[in-house]
């Protein structure tokens, strides 16, 4: 901002005095808000319970370990369900997202009104957590894997379509022009101009979403979605902490495994 001439020197400051004062003031206000908020939280907290925490943790750990090894035989089938939920949920979402993304992208949509409608669908899907979707869908189709798959699919298609349509909008237009100029039909332009450019992004995003969905489908069972979350919920309800730990160990291994699979696939896409 201002260059100030002082004697023979030209001085430069990043901000002038007025702006600087305003900035200090806003920092002060932020600090006061944090302080007030902290005081409120403190008043709402029963500190006796917090001070009790170390003892509670020791107690918990003693109940959790050793994990219930026999329970694993019940976990494996549930894990299979969970993996299936994530794969089918993601698969359905991908199949629906591709046309949605094409209709949502400025450069490929058929009409601005269609684009508006699709964008609304995408926002609706994204703004509701998959747990909430599961709660709603369980009410409609009853508890079980199907409800989970639906919840995962509905939640994922928003995120997938959004990332895909952004990829379509950022596409390199020159090859598209070149293919069009050869007299190719719209379908051919799509398969020769768009598909090769978009394929890596589409596959990468889908795999990444699947990795997220493995995590989501492990807990979605808690609200009646089936799979490993169902076991976790029932173990917690029965206060069987050694079984809870067994489930958590399996979830941890599964998540790490899915992250590895996803990273490996995405690394191969260049």
């Amino acid at each position: 901002m201002p260059i100030i001439s002082q004697d023979d020197l030209n001085l430069w400051m990043r901000r002038d005095r007025k702006v600087q004062r305003k900035r200090y003031l806003s920092w002060l206000i932020a600090l006061i808000i944090i302080g007030v908020g902290f005081a409120y939280i403190s008043r709402q907290t029963m500190w006796e319970f917090v001070s009790d925490a170390p003892r509670q943790i020791r107690d918990f750990l003693s109940r959790m370990f050793p994990p219930d090894v026999k329970y694993f035989s019940r976990i494996w089938p549930a894990l299979w369900d969970t993996i299936n939920i994530s794969i089918f949920g993601t698969g359905i979402a991908v199949v629906i997202s591709i046309p949605l993304a094409i209709l949502a992208a400025k450069n490929t949509t058929v009409h601005p009104i269609v684009r508006g409608v699709v964008l609304a669908i995408i926002v609706a899907s994204r703004s509701v957590n998959s747990m909430i979707w599961a709660l709603i869908i369980v009410q409609i189709v009853g508890p079980g894997m199907f409800a989970s798959i639906m919840a995962i699919a509905i939640r994922s298609l928003g995120m997938l379509s959004k990332l895909m349509y952004e990829a379509i909008e950022e596409i390199n237009q020159e090859p598209i022009e070149a293919i069009t100029a050869t007299g190719a039909s719209r379908v051919q332009v799509f398969f020769y101009g768009y598909v090769p450019q978009l394929l890596p992004t589409f596959i990468g995003t889908s795999v990444y979403r699947w990795e997220n969905n493995i995590r989501e489908s492990t807990i979605i069972g808690i609200v009646g979605g089936g799979g490993i979350g169902l076991l976790l919920n029932s173990a917690i309800n029965r206060l069987a902490w050694d079984q809870v730990v067994s489930v958590l160990i399996v979830i941890l291994i599964t998540v790490v495994g899915s992250e590895w699979v996803s990273a490996t696939i995405r690394k191969k896409l260049v």
């Binding site: 090859p175 070149a178 100029a181 007299g183």
Partner: peptide
């Protein structure tokens, strides 16, 4: 368009093909 060929500044090839 089939009878009109075109050559571009940035080549306009489809990179991944």
């Amino acid at each position: 368009r089939r009878k009109i060929g075109m050559i571009f500044q940035e080549y306009a090839l489809v990179d991944r093909l």
